[in-house]
Protein backbone atom coordinates (compact mmCIF):
# COMPACT_ATOMS: atom_id res chain seq x y z
CA UNK A 1 0.00 0.00 0.00
CA UNK A 2 1.79 3.19 -1.15
CA UNK A 3 1.85 6.10 1.21
CA UNK A 4 -0.66 8.91 0.78
CA UNK A 5 1.20 11.99 -0.42
CA UNK A 6 -1.51 14.58 -0.77
CA UNK A 7 -5.09 14.78 0.40
CA UNK A 8 -7.61 17.50 -0.28
CA UNK A 9 -10.85 17.51 1.62
CA UNK A 10 -13.72 19.91 1.08
CA UNK A 11 -11.53 22.53 -0.59
CA UNK A 12 -13.47 25.66 -1.49
CA UNK A 13 -12.29 28.80 -3.16
CA UNK A 14 -14.06 31.88 -4.48
CA UNK A 15 -12.77 34.95 -6.27
CA UNK A 16 -14.92 37.68 -4.77
CA UNK A 17 -18.47 36.36 -5.01
CA UNK A 18 -17.63 33.91 -7.76
CA UNK A 19 -17.17 30.39 -6.42
CA UNK A 20 -14.49 28.57 -8.39
CA UNK A 21 -13.82 25.45 -6.30
CA UNK A 22 -16.90 23.97 -4.65
CA UNK A 23 -15.68 21.28 -2.28
CA UNK A 24 -12.84 19.29 -3.83
CA UNK A 25 -11.92 15.91 -2.33
CA UNK A 26 -8.88 14.21 -3.77
CA UNK A 27 -6.23 11.80 -2.60
CA UNK A 28 -2.92 11.16 -4.36
CA UNK A 29 -0.54 8.42 -3.29
CA UNK A 30 3.21 8.35 -3.70
CA UNK A 31 4.25 7.65 -7.32
CA UNK A 32 0.74 8.14 -8.66
CA UNK A 33 -0.17 10.21 -11.61
CA UNK A 34 -3.58 11.87 -11.55
CA UNK A 35 -4.99 13.71 -14.54
CA UNK A 36 -7.50 16.54 -14.25
CA UNK A 37 -9.74 17.05 -17.23
CA UNK A 38 -12.61 19.46 -17.70
CA UNK A 39 -13.57 22.36 -19.89
CA UNK A 40 -11.90 25.74 -19.73
CA UNK A 41 -13.01 27.60 -16.61
CA UNK A 42 -13.85 24.46 -14.64
CA UNK A 43 -11.20 25.33 -12.05
CA UNK A 44 -8.18 23.15 -12.95
CA UNK A 45 -5.60 25.93 -12.79
CA UNK A 46 -7.07 27.34 -9.61
CA UNK A 47 -6.92 23.93 -7.96
CA UNK A 48 -3.24 23.50 -8.83
CA UNK A 49 -2.43 27.03 -7.69
CA UNK A 50 -4.18 26.36 -4.38
CA UNK A 51 -2.14 23.19 -3.81
CA UNK A 52 1.03 25.21 -4.46
CA UNK A 53 -0.26 27.86 -2.01
CA UNK A 54 -0.19 30.54 -4.68
CA UNK A 55 -3.85 31.10 -3.79
CA UNK A 56 -5.21 30.80 -0.27
CA UNK A 57 -8.26 28.55 0.07
CA UNK A 58 -11.47 29.64 1.82
CA UNK A 59 -12.49 26.32 3.29
CA UNK A 60 -11.34 22.74 3.67
CA UNK A 61 -7.95 21.18 4.19
CA UNK A 62 -4.89 20.36 2.13
CA UNK A 63 -2.75 17.68 3.74
CA UNK A 64 0.72 17.17 2.29
CA UNK A 65 2.95 14.51 3.87
CA UNK A 66 0.60 14.33 6.86
CA UNK A 67 1.00 18.06 7.41
CA UNK A 68 -1.87 20.52 7.09
CA UNK A 69 -0.43 23.05 4.66
CA UNK A 70 -3.67 25.01 4.45
CA UNK A 71 -3.66 26.18 8.05
CA UNK A 72 -3.65 29.95 8.27
CA UNK A 73 -0.37 31.57 9.27
CA UNK A 74 1.77 28.80 7.84
CA UNK A 75 4.87 30.00 5.98
CA UNK A 76 4.20 29.00 2.36
CA UNK A 77 7.81 29.15 1.20
CA UNK A 78 9.12 25.82 2.55
CA UNK A 79 5.99 24.09 1.24
CA UNK A 80 6.38 25.53 -2.25
CA UNK A 81 9.96 24.28 -2.34
CA UNK A 82 8.66 20.73 -2.11
CA UNK A 83 5.81 21.15 -4.61
CA UNK A 84 6.83 21.89 -8.19
CA UNK A 85 4.48 23.76 -10.51
CA UNK A 86 4.82 24.08 -14.29
CA UNK A 87 2.67 26.59 -16.13
CA UNK A 88 0.88 26.53 -19.43
CA UNK A 89 2.76 29.63 -20.58
CA UNK A 90 6.18 28.40 -19.31
CA UNK A 91 6.82 31.62 -17.35
CA UNK A 92 10.55 31.39 -17.83
CA UNK A 93 12.51 34.44 -16.71
CA UNK A 94 13.24 36.15 -20.04
CA UNK A 95 16.32 38.04 -18.82
CA UNK A 96 18.16 34.88 -17.77
CA UNK A 97 19.68 32.04 -19.75
CA UNK A 98 18.15 28.58 -19.45
CA UNK A 99 20.89 27.65 -17.00
CA UNK A 100 20.36 30.77 -14.86
CA UNK A 101 16.62 30.11 -14.83
CA UNK A 102 17.29 26.69 -13.34
CA UNK A 103 20.03 27.52 -10.85
CA UNK A 104 18.43 30.62 -9.32
CA UNK A 105 16.05 28.96 -6.88
CA UNK A 106 18.31 26.17 -5.54
CA UNK A 107 21.09 28.69 -5.04
CA UNK A 108 18.95 31.24 -3.23
CA UNK A 109 16.72 28.89 -1.29
CA UNK A 110 19.15 26.18 -0.27
CA UNK A 111 22.13 28.55 -0.18
CA UNK A 112 24.14 26.07 -2.20
CA UNK A 113 27.07 27.32 -4.25
CA UNK A 114 27.02 27.46 -8.04
CA UNK A 115 29.95 25.07 -8.40
CA UNK A 116 28.30 22.58 -6.10
CA UNK A 117 25.09 22.66 -8.11
CA UNK A 118 26.75 22.69 -11.50
CA UNK A 119 27.03 18.96 -12.13
CA UNK A 120 23.49 18.21 -10.94
CA UNK A 121 22.02 20.86 -13.18
CA UNK A 122 24.09 19.82 -16.15
CA UNK A 123 22.87 16.27 -15.61
CA UNK A 124 19.25 17.48 -15.64
CA UNK A 125 19.77 19.34 -18.92
CA UNK A 126 21.38 16.23 -20.41
CA UNK A 127 18.67 13.94 -19.20
CA UNK A 128 16.03 15.96 -21.01
CA UNK A 129 18.03 16.49 -24.19
CA UNK A 130 18.92 20.14 -23.66
CA UNK A 131 22.66 19.92 -22.96
CA UNK A 132 23.34 22.18 -25.95
CA UNK A 133 20.85 24.82 -24.86
CA UNK A 134 21.99 25.84 -21.37
CA UNK A 135 23.34 29.23 -22.46
CA UNK A 136 20.36 30.19 -24.61
CA UNK A 137 17.83 32.79 -23.56
CA UNK A 138 14.16 31.76 -23.55
CA UNK A 139 13.36 33.71 -26.72
CA UNK A 140 16.07 31.74 -28.52
CA UNK A 141 14.35 28.45 -27.71
CA UNK A 142 11.36 26.73 -29.28
CA UNK A 143 8.18 26.40 -27.22
CA UNK A 144 8.89 22.76 -26.53
CA UNK A 145 12.40 23.54 -25.39
CA UNK A 146 11.18 26.37 -23.19
CA UNK A 147 8.64 24.12 -21.53
CA UNK A 148 11.30 21.48 -20.91
CA UNK A 149 13.53 24.13 -19.32
CA UNK A 150 10.59 25.13 -17.12
CA UNK A 151 10.20 21.51 -16.05
CA UNK A 152 13.93 21.24 -15.32
CA UNK A 153 13.68 24.46 -13.31
CA UNK A 154 10.99 22.94 -11.12
CA UNK A 155 12.85 19.62 -10.83
CA UNK A 156 16.06 21.33 -9.70
CA UNK A 157 14.32 22.03 -6.39
CA UNK A 158 13.90 18.26 -5.97
CA UNK A 159 10.17 18.48 -5.30
CA UNK A 160 8.23 15.56 -3.90
CA UNK A 161 5.25 16.19 -6.14
CA UNK A 162 4.91 17.94 -9.48
CA UNK A 163 1.88 19.87 -10.71
CA UNK A 164 1.50 20.45 -14.44
CA UNK A 165 -1.03 22.99 -15.68
CA UNK A 166 -1.85 22.24 -19.33
CA UNK A 167 1.83 22.27 -20.12
CA UNK A 168 1.31 21.34 -23.77
CA UNK A 169 -1.62 23.64 -24.55
CA UNK A 170 0.51 26.55 -25.73
CA UNK A 171 2.66 24.38 -27.99
CA UNK A 172 2.53 23.75 -31.72
CA UNK A 173 1.30 20.20 -32.33
CA UNK A 174 4.69 18.93 -33.52
CA UNK A 175 6.34 20.06 -30.26
CA UNK A 176 3.88 18.40 -27.88
CA UNK A 177 5.55 15.00 -28.15
CA UNK A 178 8.89 16.07 -26.71
CA UNK A 179 7.22 17.47 -23.60
CA UNK A 180 5.04 14.40 -23.14
CA UNK A 181 8.22 12.29 -23.36
CA UNK A 182 9.60 14.22 -20.40
CA UNK A 183 6.43 13.49 -18.45
CA UNK A 184 6.72 9.78 -19.32
CA UNK A 185 10.30 9.75 -18.04
CA UNK A 186 9.25 11.34 -14.77
CA UNK A 187 6.42 8.89 -14.47
CA UNK A 188 8.80 5.96 -14.89
CA UNK A 189 11.09 7.36 -12.22
CA UNK A 190 8.18 7.30 -9.82
CA UNK A 191 7.46 11.02 -9.51
CA UNK A 192 4.10 11.84 -7.95
CA UNK A 193 2.23 14.06 -10.40
CA UNK A 194 -1.02 15.92 -10.91
CA UNK A 195 -1.63 16.96 -14.48
CA UNK A 196 -4.30 19.25 -15.84
CA UNK A 197 -4.48 18.28 -19.48
CA UNK A 198 -6.50 18.02 -22.66
CA UNK A 199 -4.23 15.27 -24.01
CA UNK A 200 -6.72 12.43 -23.73
CA UNK A 201 -4.46 9.92 -25.43
CA UNK A 202 -1.65 10.65 -23.03
CA UNK A 203 -3.95 10.47 -20.00
CA UNK A 204 -5.29 7.13 -21.20
CA UNK A 205 -1.76 5.77 -21.50
CA UNK A 206 -0.15 7.19 -18.38
CA UNK A 207 -2.66 8.17 -15.70
CA UNK A 208 -3.55 6.08 -12.67
CA UNK A 209 -6.73 8.08 -12.21
CA UNK A 210 -8.58 10.69 -14.17
CA UNK A 211 -10.73 13.32 -12.45
CA UNK A 212 -13.38 15.17 -14.38
CA UNK A 213 -13.86 18.71 -13.09
CA UNK A 214 -17.02 20.65 -13.71
CA UNK A 215 -17.88 23.98 -12.11
CA UNK A 216 -15.35 23.47 -9.36
CA UNK A 217 -16.40 19.94 -8.48
CA UNK A 218 -14.86 16.57 -9.26
CA UNK A 219 -17.93 14.97 -10.78
CA UNK A 220 -16.24 11.73 -11.74
CA UNK A 221 -13.05 9.99 -10.73
CA UNK A 222 -12.05 6.71 -12.36
CA UNK A 223 -9.24 4.84 -14.04
CA UNK A 224 -8.61 5.96 -17.62
CA UNK A 225 -10.05 2.71 -19.02
CA UNK A 226 -13.36 3.35 -17.37
CA UNK A 227 -13.71 7.08 -17.77
CA UNK A 228 -12.68 7.20 -21.43
CA UNK A 229 -14.57 4.17 -22.69
CA UNK A 230 -17.52 4.17 -20.39
CA UNK A 231 -18.02 7.45 -18.55
CA UNK A 232 -20.75 7.51 -15.95
CA UNK A 233 -21.71 11.18 -16.16
CA UNK A 234 -23.48 12.81 -19.07
CA UNK A 235 -21.28 15.90 -18.61
CA UNK A 236 -18.13 13.80 -18.99
CA UNK A 237 -19.45 12.20 -22.17
CA UNK A 238 -20.17 15.60 -23.69
CA UNK A 239 -16.78 16.95 -22.69
CA UNK A 240 -14.90 13.96 -24.10
CA UNK A 241 -16.88 14.14 -27.32
CA UNK A 242 -16.00 17.81 -27.75
CA UNK A 243 -12.29 17.25 -27.06
CA UNK A 244 -12.02 14.20 -29.30
CA UNK A 245 -13.86 15.93 -32.14
CA UNK A 246 -11.39 18.76 -32.11
CA UNK A 247 -8.37 16.59 -32.73
Amino acid sequence: MPKEKLRLSGVRKAFGDVPVLNGIDLSVSEGEMVCLIGSSGSGKSTLLRCINLLEPIDNGKIIFNDEDISQPGLDPQPVRQRIGLVFQSFNLFPHMTAYENVILAPRRVFKRSGTELHSEIKALFERFGLAQRTQHYPDQLSGGQQQRVAIIRALAMEPQIMLFDEVTSALDPELIGEVLDVLRQLRMQGMTMILATHEIEFAREAADYVCMLDEGRIIEKATPDVIFSNPREERTKRFLASVLNKS
Binding site: P76, R80, F87
Partner: peptide, 21 residues
Protein backbone atom coordinates in the same frame (compact mmCIF):
# COMPACT_ATOMS: atom_id res chain seq x y z
CA UNK B 1 2.07 38.64 -12.41
CA UNK B 2 2.92 35.23 -13.84
CA UNK B 3 6.60 36.11 -13.37
CA UNK B 4 6.08 36.60 -9.66
CA UNK B 5 4.02 33.43 -9.51
CA UNK B 6 6.83 31.49 -11.18
CA UNK B 7 9.33 32.82 -8.65
CA UNK B 8 7.13 32.08 -5.68
CA UNK B 9 6.20 28.61 -6.94
CA UNK B 10 9.91 27.77 -6.80
CA UNK B 11 9.97 28.70 -3.12
CA UNK B 12 11.77 32.01 -3.58
CA UNK B 13 11.07 34.66 -0.95
CA UNK B 14 9.22 37.84 -1.92
CA UNK B 15 12.46 39.78 -1.61
CA UNK B 16 14.35 37.42 -3.90
CA UNK B 17 11.49 37.37 -6.38
CA UNK B 18 11.62 41.16 -6.50
CA UNK B 19 15.40 41.33 -6.62
CA UNK B 20 16.19 38.65 -9.18
CA UNK B 21 13.04 38.40 -11.27
Amino acid sequence: DSQRAAGKSLGLSNTDTMRFI
